[in-house]
Design a protein around this nucleic acid. Structure first.
Lengths: 222, 222
DNA sequence: TATTTTTTTGATATAGTTTTTATAAGGAGG
DNA sequence: CCTCCTTATAAAAACTATATCAAAAAAATA
């Protein structure tokens, strides 16, 4: 997943780059539209983060030129929100805009959303047989029917899924899901396990009791 | 918004038609230049999608004839990119070209861009059952009756629509709709959600509370 | 500037979730 | 087969998050 970051300010480019790398995206930088077009032609870019205000070739010009060649999704950074009616030709279905100043976190969220929308992987699901977790929606389905879990049950399930086939002690569960400073009873875990199992219906047996230790999540058992 | 699609290959006409209809454009087809000219004369066409290579009357001839009568914007489809130097005299301000093979998505984007440029208020709607957002008018309708939303409620709804099926935290909503530098109370979001729900009447349940997280917009639930 | 509309705040009510407590059930070892 | 220890279950109590309301503040409009 490779991003092209186009902005005339090095500082902004670097900030975005850092955040993007942190999220395991590859990145390439360009300081103006011309450079960006060259990169687009040569490299396989999945998404462009584009500042509209740039010297030399401005963002909109670049955008038009680029869209003639390739239909890569774009996130446009613009200074004021009123300006976005100027963004003629930008495909609301594919692209997105963000008004400055923006939080890098927000940008990353948008990037993920767009990549997801444009079908480039990043589908955030867990699936085992007909059990499905949609991490974005925070929903869990069995046979495409949503089963309603409370927040703790959902967290618990996600944690099990993340640690499948590993026996987790009650202490581990408590410190990971409740916080290291939680001093509650061990029965608390049991109760949540019970409720989660009930809600998992036919999949209740995926959560196996490991006597004297705790619990483990084991798909693919026969 | 009515498009005329001119191409000798039925397959291509149909593909384009399908995509265009999906975007709520009306469409008419013609298999050659002559037929196209007749349609132009009779019907009120807003944009022409034209294949240059055609038997009988070729695209360029049609183009010249048409431009004598009406100045309808045209998107030209040409087989190879080298050929477009032949397109001398075609109005780059109004028209556009696309080399085959092209992605239908790309074509739709161009169509929208051109219609927007030529001032033909492009219809930009979101629709779910009888709930309709007219993005140009900034209006929302239920059963064709306008429901009056305050600016924040409207923004909120649009943002939800853009992020359907994704649980959005109050922080995300605040930073997206209020600005990253807004340090208000979380209850602010709740209050706006409440008012939006009230205004959505029968559609109030599209906004689902995700306990411990925030809210999500979920159409198509049963 | 005055008036109206919209937004925000803070208090309270309500609904939903978590934790505790008590008891029952199940397995392991003597 | 009985006892001890662990886990399962159920229901009540404690707690937390959300919904709602009304009033104050801010913003938009006249």
């Amino acid at each position: 997943m490779k991003l092209l970051i186009v902005d005339d300010e090095k500082l902004i480019r670097d900030v975005i780059t850092e955040y993007a790398n942190h999220e395991k995206f590859e990145t390439v930088q360009a300081s103006d539209g011309e450079e960006a077009l060259n990169i687009i032609a040569k490299e396989n870019i999945d998404l462009v983060v584009l500042d509209i205000m740039m010297p030399k070739m401005d963002g909109l010009t670049f955008l038009k030129e680029m869209k003639k060649v390739k239909n890569i999704p774009v996130i446009i950074l613009s200074a004021r929100s009123e300006e976005y009616d100027k963004l003629i030709g930008f495909d609301l279905g594919t692209d997105d805009y963000l008004t400055k100043p923006f939080s890098p976190k927000e940008l990353i969220a948008r990037i993920k959303a767009i990549l997801k929308r444009s079908g480039k992987g990043l589908n955030d699901y867990y699936e085992y047989k007909t059990l499905k977790i949609d991490y974005n929606a925070h929903s869990v389905y069995i046979n495409n029917n949503e089963i309603k879990l409370t927040p703790k049950e959902y967290e618990l399930l996600c944690f099990f899924v993340q640690n499948e086939n590993i026996a987790l002690s009650r202490e581990q569960l408590l410190s990971n899901l409740w916080g290291y400073d939680f001093f509650g009873d061990d029965r608390t875990v049991d109760t949540h396990i019970k409720m989660l199992r009930n809600n998992l219906g036919p999949y209740r047996d995926l959560i196996i009791t490991v006597r004297g230790v705790g619990y483990k999540f084991v798909p693919n058992q026969d």
